[in-house]
Amino acid sequence: MEWKGVFPAFTTKFTPADELDLPLFGKNLQVQMDAGIDGIILGGSLGEASVLTTSEKETLTKYAVEQAQGSIPVVMNIAEGSTREAVKQAELAAKWGAKGLMLLPPMRYKSDERETAQFFKTVAASTNLPIMIYNNPVDYKVEVTLDIFAQLAEHANIQAVKESTRDVSNVTRMINRFGDRFKILCGVDTLAMEEFVLGADGWVGGLVCAFPAETVAVYKLTKAGRIAEALAIYRWFLPLLELDLHPKLVQYIKLAEQQAGLGSETVRAPRLTLVGEERARILKVIDTALANRPVLPEYKLLEYAD
């Protein structure tokens, strides 16, 4: 498992009858792989995990594993309120063929540092799957501090962090304290290029679901030192990337997928599709970007130092 490169946080595709839309999921996945992504993450907040059944998670994971055919790793997200259930989900993920886990702190309860560390340790000790810790104190109210990471370093399968503190300096803090012990993947779309320059190893992206080629191009060009070319794409991309920072990021990104021909705006209740002024406003952002989509340089075969 290599925690580097671009890992889309996949949306879950639904039919109008509120069932999984596997053909549409497969279409998006194929375009993502053709664009050069390095792995996929299922069942995150963007994937509407809180409204998915365990059976649906199984179906999605097995389908993605089958479609990927070993070319990229499938990572399953775990966001549970109890340690027991998180351990169970880790066991199921391995059974279904996932090659890694993204692990959030306990949901709905604001655990302290001791509890947070113990939660991660218990799950890590229960599985052989490699783990990426999701550090997002803005949305989930629990910060995975450097001192917690120092405790987690004893578990070899805790290997990476999805860095979503919104503080780009945290990349430098992690590297200063731990060197390359933990791979760092940016989890905030609007800070990605900045974090690559500071040494981040990858990008857990949202808008990549609708714009995979542009996302991978920004990552590879930046890592190859072709900053001016990457920056031109990134500046075009920013109004779209800002859609990732809103509580309705699922609706916004699914609408972008639909406009780009890679998905549909169908969501699962209690979420509702956008209407009125809000939908018109978001459509304007998306359609303006599509009308001015940049011509990308050849990026797939770029070489760069790890």
Rank of each mutant, 00 (worst) to 15 (best):
I37A: 15
L52I: 00
V74Q: 04
V74G: 06
A68C: 13
K62Y: 09
E66F: 02
D34K: 12
A35I: 11
P73Y: 06
T54W: 08
A68L: 04
T53N: 03
A68M: 01
S71R: 14
Y63S: 14
G36V: 09
Y63H: 11
D38R: 03
T53D: 05
V65W: 02
Y63D: 13
A64T: 03
D38A: 15
G47T: 12
Q69T: 07
V51C: 14
L42W: 01
G43A: 08
G43N: 14
G47M: 06
V65P: 12
Q67H: 04
T59I: 15
I72M: 08
G39A: 12
G43D: 00
T54V: 14
A68F: 03
I40A: 01
L46P: 01
K62N: 06
E66Y: 01
I41V: 15
I40N: 02
T61L: 11
E66D: 14
G36Q: 05
T59P: 04
S71N: 09
E66T: 07
D38F: 00
Q69A: 14
E58S: 10
I41Q: 13
T54E: 15
L60Y: 01
T61R: 00
Q67G: 09
E66S: 10
I37Q: 09
S55I: 09
E66K: 08
D34Y: 03
L60V: 04
A49H: 11
T53S: 15
A35S: 15
V51G: 05
E48M: 03
A35C: 13
L42P: 02
S50N: 11
G44D: 08
L52R: 04
S45D: 14
L46I: 11
S55P: 02
Q67L: 14
E56H: 06
D38M: 02
P73M: 10
V51K: 06
A64Y: 01
E58K: 13
P73A: 07
P73I: 05
I72R: 00
V65I: 08
T59C: 14
A64R: 02
A49F: 12
A68V: 10
G43I: 04
G47Q: 10
L46V: 07
I41A: 12
T53V: 01
V51A: 08
Y63P: 03
G44W: 03
K57R: 15
E48L: 00
Q69H: 07
E66L: 10
Y63I: 05
D34S: 14
Q67W: 00
I40Y: 01
T54N: 09
K62T: 00
V74I: 13
G36I: 08
T61F: 05
L60R: 01
D34G: 07
L52Y: 01
A64H: 07
L46N: 14
S55A: 15
K62S: 05
E48C: 01
T53L: 06
S50F: 12
G47R: 09
I41T: 15
K62P: 07
G36M: 08
E58M: 12
P73V: 09
M33I: 15
K57W: 00
Q69R: 15
L46H: 04
A35K: 02
G36E: 13
S55T: 10
I40G: 04
E48F: 03
V65R: 00
E48P: 05
E48T: 02
L42R: 03
G44N: 08
E48N: 02
E56A: 09
